[in-house]
Design a protein around this nucleic acid. Structure first.
Length: 239
DNA sequence: TATATTTGACCGGA
DNA sequence: TCCGGTCAAATATA
């Protein structure tokens, strides 16, 4: 028999599945509008997070910032910090994983490390290894957000103007990026898009442990160790 | 010796 | 004035 907690987790999963089906229907019908898709994505992410929280602990986390309501607030709050020619652009590609993912396919060079007031862990700053050669402004920040188990949050900023295309590396079960070619959006979404963007992928399996600065675009990464990760993403542009 | 990393200083925004 | 992000000199490593 299912316990009460199992019932709640199951209900959350079923709810997420329903929303995923709705999303699939929209995509099948080519009804690809942010107005329709974004709420569904948020709901799906919330459902999975909620289900995971029930699995790991009897009670859900008291506060989860990726909820749709809170996300909306953060959208407005964060958007004010990203103004580009009158257009607010926020794009996040966040990755939270047990390792800092040094093999994300790009060559990075560390240029700084700081202690952040809101965290006991230091934050490392990296820029593209081809920053000078290709005038590439892509940067990323890596910060440990949890000790046991170790969880790192990697936030990608900017675009790789050096141009890159992912190649697959079975060694790590992840993608590799080869430079001098154009990256495929299906693999590294919008890496070649507009300037001053932040990309964040969040591993929802670890999200509930600590998510103190959830951005508007949190992405679910769901893949097996030997399977190429596929993830959804969303952009938000404010005028 | 060339390249990468570390770390304190500096700068700009809130 | 505080804080996060970046710079650049010093240091480490291959």
């Amino acid at each position: 028999m299912f316990s009460n907690v199992d019932h709640k987790a199951l209900a959350a999963l079923l709810h997420g599945q329903g929303c995923a089906n709705s999303l699939k229907t929209l995509l099948d019908n080519h009804e690809i509008t942010s107005v329709l898709i974004e709420p569904l994505i948020n709901t799906i992410l919330d459902s999975f997070s909620l289900a995971l929280s029930f699995v790991d602990s009897p009670s859900p986390p008291p506060h989860h910032e990726s909820s749709s309501q809170n996300m909306a607030g953060l959208v407005l709050q964060r958007s004010s910090k990203k103004r580009i020619c009158g257009i607010h652009v926020i794009k996040n590609y966040r990755d939270e994983s047990p390792t800092p993912r040094p093999d994300d396919g790009f060559t990075w060079r560390k240029y700084g490390q700081k202690t952040i007031k809101t965290s006991v862990h230091q934050r490392s700053y990296y820029r593209c290894g081809y920053a000078k050669e290709h005038n590439c402004n892509a940067t990323k920040r890596v910060q440990m957000i949890q000790d046991c188990p170790p969880v790192y949050r990697t936030t990608y900023m900017g675009q790789h103007t050096c141009k890159a295309i992912p190649v697959y590396d079975d060694t790590y079960g992840s993608e590799m990026i080869q430079f001098d070619q154009v990256v495929s959006e299906s693999v590294m979404p919008r890496f070649t898009s507009t300037d001053n963007e932040a990309f964040n992928i969040k591993d929802e399996a670890t999200d509930h442990t600590m998510n103190q600065e959830c951005d508007i675009n949190d992405f679910l990464v769901d893949y097996e160790p030997n399977e190429f990760p596929s993830f959804s993403y969303e952009d938000s542009v404010f005028f």
